[in-house]
């Protein structure tokens, strides 16, 4: 076939037609792509408007974390009503998985007023997540009274671990709003203290008076049986306990409270003792001695006794840490 013949042949015509069609399509689509491309910003706007239910203006904020059980992925402040939209991943779900939620935190008058909306974004390994329905999520809505726990105030779902992860995500979002913008809580000031294993560091507080006495309000975590105790402990300048009283007895059921050691119940066991004195009651490392009879605190309510001793140990051991904390605060100003 000659060159001239090729240009007149059917093959050439076919090729030209196909190439023309391709070229026209390519050019058309390139122009359309330029006109219709959806930018990342637009995608984000859409996602946020969808969750919020109406179109809103917002500012994005950099993210820090205030809570061990949740990871804040992204945070936005809605301009017109001052609420916050937080994307938060809660841990502690089924099989160590996690749930990522969008949480709308309603803020008014400088305080967290409540949760307006929780939308589940994604999850890792939560096979029963379908059991979490709108009825469950509406348990978060309304006035904010304190951290959510999957065991209280919620419809039982059949996906308790996933529910725990969601609670953690929501708590994380609230902590974040509180800490980052409202300055209320809760940078964990006791994080570097010793003996914090059984102490709810975020709920615990202390005051120092002029005489160098520290008055703690210690909230302990629960042990296997009892839930947390609230204990008021005063430690004097020499690191010696001068007053000890149980504000809230977490021993459950209540009948166990009767089995606690009487001098722990009224606090006389601890008064006048320093940290070494507390160690003498229990052991060197303030570890749980086990339920065996024969240890000094085994009375049939060993765990409750142990938590009380632990609180006393925490108070005496960290006396100096508390004083350092105040000093550090004074230097650092309001930061």
């Amino acid at each position: 076939m000659t060159v001239k013949g090729f240009f007149k042949s059917n093959v050439f015509k076919c090729l030209v037609t196909l190439l023309c069609v391709l070229l026209v399509s390519g050019v058309f689509l390139t122009i359309m792509n330029g006109l219709l491309a959806v930018s990342d910003q637009e995608r984000l706007d859409r996602a946020i408007n969808k969750i919020y239910g109406r179109s809103v203006a917002y500012t994005e904020v950099t993210v820090e974390n205030y809570n061990d059980n949740a990871n804040i992925e992204a945070a936005y402040r809605i301009k017109d009503d001052g609420n916050y939209l937080i994307k938060s991943t809660g841990f502690g779900g089924f099989d160590n998985g996690s749930v990522t939620c969008w949480v709308v935190v309603n803020v008014s008058g400088g305080a967290v007023k409540g949760i307006d909306k929780v939308v589940i974004d994604s999850n890792k390994g939560q096979s029963y997540i379908a059991n979490i329905n709108d009825n469950f999520l509406s348990g978060f809505y309304g006035e904010y009274k304190g951290d959510f726990s999957a065991n209280e105030g919620f419809i039982k779902t059949g996906a308790t671990r996933s529910a725990t992860a969601i609670c953690n995500a929501v708590n994380g979002a609230v902590d974040y709003v509180n800490g980052k913008w409202l300055g209320n809580v809760t940078v964990d000031i006791y994080a570097d203290f010793e003996l914090t294993e059984y102490i709810e560091t975020k709920k615990t507080s202390h005051e120092i008076d002029e005489g160098g006495n520290i008055v703690y309000n210690i909230v302990t975590k629960g042990h296997t049986m009892p839930s947390g105790f609230t204990v008021k402990v005063t430690v004097s300048a020499e690191g010696i306990i001068t007053a000890y009283s149980i504000v809230n007895n977490g021993s459950s059921p209540a009948s166990y409270a009767d089995k606690m050691k009487p001098d722990i119940l009224d606090g006389t066991l601890f008064v006048g003792k320093d940290f070494a004195g507390i160690q003498a009651i229990i052991n060197e490392g303030i570890t749980y001695p086990g339920d065996d009879k024969g240890t000094t605190i085994s009375t049939g309510a060993t765990q409750s006794n142990y938590l009380c001793v632990y609180a006393a140990a925490f108070a005496t051991k960290n006396y100096q840490n508390c004083l350092d904390l105040e000093g550090g605060d004074a230097e650092g100003g309001d930061e």
Partner: peptide, 8 residues
Amino acid sequence: GIEFLEII
């Protein structure tokens, strides 16, 4: 940058 032509 021609992801949009993927179908073709």
